[in-house]
Structures are given as structure tokens and as C-alpha cells.
Write a protein that binds this DNA or RNA. Sequence first.
DNA 1: CCAAAGTGTGAGTGGTTAACCACTCAATCT
DNA 2: AGATTGAGTGGTTAACCACTCACACTTTGG
Lengths: 187, 187
Amino acid sequence: MATTGRVLSTAEERREVVLSTAVSSFAARGYYGTNTTEVAKRAGISQAYVYRLFPNKEALFLAVVEHCFDLVRDSFARGAAKARGSEPHEVLMAMGDEYARLIADQDLLLVQVHAQAAAASEPAVREVVRRGYARTVEYVRSVSGADADAVQYFMARGALCHLVVAIGATEVDAPWANTLSAGLRHY
Amino acid sequence: MATTGRVLSTAEERREVVLSTAVSSFAARGYYGTNTTEVAKRAGISQAYVYRLFPNKEALFLAVVEHCFDLVRDSFARGAAKARGSEPHEVLMAMGDEYARLIADQDLLLVQVHAQAAAASEPAVREVVRRGYARTVEYVRSVSGADADAVQYFMARGALCHLVVAIGATEVDAPWANTLSAGLRHY
DNA sequence: CCAAAGTGTGAGTGGTTAACCACTCAATCT
DNA sequence: AGATTGAGTGGTTAACCACTCACACTTTGG
């Protein structure tokens, strides 16, 4: 037995696997459009076991959304550490660059877009998204030292980024698409 | 007979009623989350008749999204007509103000948010949303005479506006919420 | 070695939903 | 008045989905 190691994972390990793989599922079709069978398939477990790991679909979605906010925050932290100087605009620039790297695979960003949409009608989602943005804005402000205007502009560019990625504007070669995506780094 | 007038509408009239009322339905729960019974109820017709007026749910949603883009364009036109001067920034300001009036009831804006989310996975939706933004950006540019940078900034503020409304940031009295929604007019 | 605790599943259930069809009634035309 | 077209509905169905439960297997600790 010792040589082969464990066959079963711990519930905590499984939950993390589910959280990561569910990002892709929810990214593709959002909260209402994603079914738990799909989530289970991607995680390599039975659909029933999803319900052992999470009390219901909503709790799973909320956990996924929080997970995404965590990843965004981590990327900002990496960016801040890499900044050339400590001037607010230098730090913001570095954060933006690291964020661009993070969302290269798109799934993460699409979850944010879907969460934002669901926030309008699902109170629990709204709560989580609000707290996520609260932490994000506060983090950006305190670490960069930028004033409110600069932080708002930073977030506005992020929001524009959501739009550009969601409609795939970078794949379109037309004046309107270039106008929207000008200066937004992407990898 | 003559005094009561017509009892039945024409199909075209009905389609327009459905388009208008369906905005609220899709605003609340998006494409996947909205069922056709709900749409029918709001329009005051039977669910079956929805399928006489539109070939399927997707076509209905697409028509609603296009309808919303039309309304946005109309509001920009009204704004441009009201502008104090003909300087680009004056025209943009007036357009933004009229847009703020338009989205006071939120449903219209929420449809845009949901459409943007659905655009990522539904090719047909993506096509309509792309065309919608293509027309919008081009319209803003040509009517205001602003350069690409100013137009991008205008659109970025619009995108930020989507976020602020979706999570109800204006109802939260906290630094992060004030930072996000600063200077965004709302009625 | 055995029992308790924990991991994992197959097989279901009740409820919902998009789409369809047979049909009725109102309006118009000849 | 009778025939024809178009508006509108009730009822149904096949698929789907969130969620449950009884059961089996693995691991751990005494």
C-alpha cells in the first residue's frame, strides 16, 4: 500500500479542484446557464458528490466568484511588487500589466462579467460581488497611493476590458473595435 | 360594433409590445434565466403566442437586445441635439447626460450587461452585440467629432456605469462605492 | 483486526421549461 | 351570407435540472 499512496482525495482538496475547474464552466454559460453535471464532469467526480462538497449550486457559484476575486487581488499584489518606482501611476501601470497577464485565458474575466450580471437579481451574488469590489478598490487605493480619480479611471479601464473581451473586440479589425481596445495590453 | 373598435392587435403591434415588456424580463434574469412564460405574462398574451411572433427564445432575446441598442442611440441623438456648443467635449457631455436619463429605470442597462455576458458563449448574441457597439461607437465619434481617445474614455465610463448599476453601488455609502460612482450622473 | 469516519457513486424524484399542435374566435373579403 | 385569413389559446410532451438517498469503498486509529 505505501508505494501507491492514497487513492482518495480529502474533501478539502476536492473542493479546490472543483473551484478551479468550475471557473471554466461558469465562464462559458454563467450562473443560470451552467448545470451541475457539467461542473462535475470537468472536476472528474460524480454530480452527486458536488452536493456533498457544496450545499447547493448558489453556494458553489459564490465560492467560485470569491475565488476569482482572490486571484485578481493576487495578481495586483504581484504587479505592485514588480513596479519600477513607487509613484502611483507606476504602481497602477504595473498592476494593470499583471492583470492583463492573469486574464489571458479569459475564463476568469468572464466569471466576473457573469457575476456582475447575476448580481442585479440575486441578492447573495450582489453581496459577494460588492464585497469583492470593495476589497479590490480599497486594495488598489492603499497599495498604489493613487487618488480617487486615478483609481476610478483604473477601474473604468478594467470595466472596458470586460466588454472588449466578452465581445472579442480584439479579433475584429475595424475602427470601432480598435477605438475600444486601444492601449489595453493583452497577452 | 363600431363603437368598441378592434379587439385584436396586428401581429406587428404585438411584437412591439412584447419587445418592450420583455426588456424587464430579460433585465431581471438574463437570457438563460428568463422563461418564455414570464415574457408572455408581462406582454399579456399566452406563452404559445410568443412562438407565433418569434421563431424561438434566442431570436426574441436578440430582438430585445437590438431594441435596447436602438434606444441608446436615440438617447445619444437627443443629447447631441441639446448640446450647448459644438465642441466635442460639450457634445459628449450632453450625450452622457441624456444616457443617464435613459437608464434611470435600469432595465435597459441590465439587458446590456446580460447581453455582454451571453455574448461570450452564444455566437449569435456576440454578433448582435458587436454590431450594436460598432454602430454606437461610430455614431458617438461622428456626431461628437471627438478623437479616438475621448471616445474610448466615454465608452469606458459607460462600462463603469454598467458595473455601478449592476451591483447597486450608489446605494452603498462607503469610500470604495463613492470612488466608483463619482461623477456619474443619475436621475 | 475491526470499527468508526470519511470519500465517492448509481439510481432516482419532483419540478420546470422550450417548443408544438389542434383548435376557437374575430376580422375581412366577395 | 358564406368563405377565407389571421389572431390567439389550452393542453401536452420530451428533455432537462437541482437535489436526495441508499449504498460501497477507502482510510485512519486504537
